[in-house]
Nucleic acid binder design. Structure first.
Lengths: 238, 238
DNA sequence: TCGCCCGATTTGTATAGACAAATATATTAT
DNA sequence: ATAATATATTTGTCTATACAAATCGGGCGA
């Protein structure tokens, strides 16, 4: 049922989200009451109520009967289920994302890599290493091998403006992914890149992505333990 | 706003969920129209609409304007950090699982805990600490707070024969869970329990579980980084 | 027979009003 | 001053109604 104008309850949601995202309403802030929003938007209370109810279900607001509606203290953590690129994740937190390409070349991979990508031994594969920053702080070191059959122009991309994940998804449907999460000690190279000490634990997210029956890419995403959390929500019936 | 009787829209949701879960309405089934549900439950259309809208948001129904409402084809993929108990996981690997109960008592929790469980301040909550072994090696330290309203007999259970997770699931439907994964340095207590050194990173899985609108349990699951990996598969569109 | 139009059905959004329940605030009594 | 009480505020649920938009089905005409 597309329409020329956005439904009223979505307009209210949009307004509220902007206030929260911009930081105008910090965590714990007491937002306008339903009655006030009714006056502001000239809509019925049911419409305002729906907007507030949905944002509450989404975890952005917390409502206390008799008291008021407040901005949720805990920001929603990143989705582990969804294959998101780190840039979107950071932007959703209202932070600035930037990245540096540390390596982008073709190389003859070892047996483990070619096997994983379903290629012949000694086949040439693409490799990229990209360091992602959140508000200027290193937040993820992305070490990635890519199947050239799937992305022949991979090396020609500018990965400071788009992420490998976003680029690969634009080429075709990525229909399956496998993740593994580990807590590890950083190697010397990782320590240097992420600017952390040797005793800081790291969260390593290992990801393999399929398109059809072939593996498209295999990535190791290393995060500093002190600056990153991986989150996921599941909802069932009610 | 607890009440003696379940809100009408939840009654409708419950009815629909039972039909779907029992298999009475298979995938793709055309469920009764809003008008029919209005007649069945003697409620207003807005109430029925809310129930259907929320189940659609939860991914259990698919609505087509002008056509009808259908049971979703794809079952919810609990693929990722599935709520498995560690015992099953270890057994699936063909290994021997054992466990030791290190603590099992009622205590007056701090504000953060009672808030999380939706209880009054200074309310008494149940707490358990259980150490799980795989082939005799410590593999998980489970520190858990439980809402006594949901599991009044929690303290009387024998958690060497059944896990807290399995017990809680037997009491009622756990319909929502939130996970967070971190890489952390072990505390002194954790080092001792898991028999690891101070420089060994640990994987901390933080889990909150809901039943209806109340949090049932909050658990911290700490694994030694060298002996544990968290795996997950996810298929679907992007 | 095939295609088109019109009406019936179904979902999507929106309103105004109502009462209940939980909380906060002000008032009163001790 | 403190405690108990009354009042106002705020959220939660529910109803009856209305119109819009999308789809489906049948009848009509070429």
């Amino acid at each position: 049922m597309p329409r020329d104008t956005l439904p009223l309850y979505l307009q209210v949601k949009q307004f509220l989200c902007e206030k929260i995202d911009s930081g105008a309403w910090p965590e714990g802030h007491h937002i306008p009451t339903e009655h006030e929003l009714v006056s502001m938007f000239k809509v019925s209370r049911m419409t305002v109520n729906r907007a507030l109810r949905e944002l509450t279900a989404a975890g952005r607001l917390r409502r206390v009967p008799g008291a008021g509606t407040f901005v949720t203290d805990a920001k929603p953590s990143s989705g582990l289920l969804e294959i998101r690129n780190i840039a979107d994740e950071i932007k959703d937190r209202g932070h600035v994302h930037s990245s540096e390409v540390r390596l982008l070349k073709a190389e003859t991979a070892n047996r483990a890599i070619t096997d994983a990508l379903g290629l012949d031994q000694d086949a040439v594969v693409f490799r990229s290493m990209i360091l992602h920053f959140e508000e200027g702080w290193p937040i993820q070191l992305e070490d990635r091998y890519v199947n050239p059959d799937f992305a022949p122009d991979y090396l020609a991309q500018d990965f400071t403006s788009t992420t490998p994940n976003a680029y690969l998804m634009s080429l075709g449907p990525l229909d399956r992914a496998e993740h593994r999460v580990e807590a590890i000690r950083p190697t010397a190279a990782v320590q240097r890149q992420l600017r952390i000490s040797a005793d800081e634990p790291c969260l390593l997210l290992h990801r393999r992505t399929w398109s059809g029956r072939h593996i498209v890419t295999r990535a190791w995403l290393t995060h500093p333990g002190s600056r990153y959390r991986l989150g996921a929500q599941f909802s069932g019936r009610h």
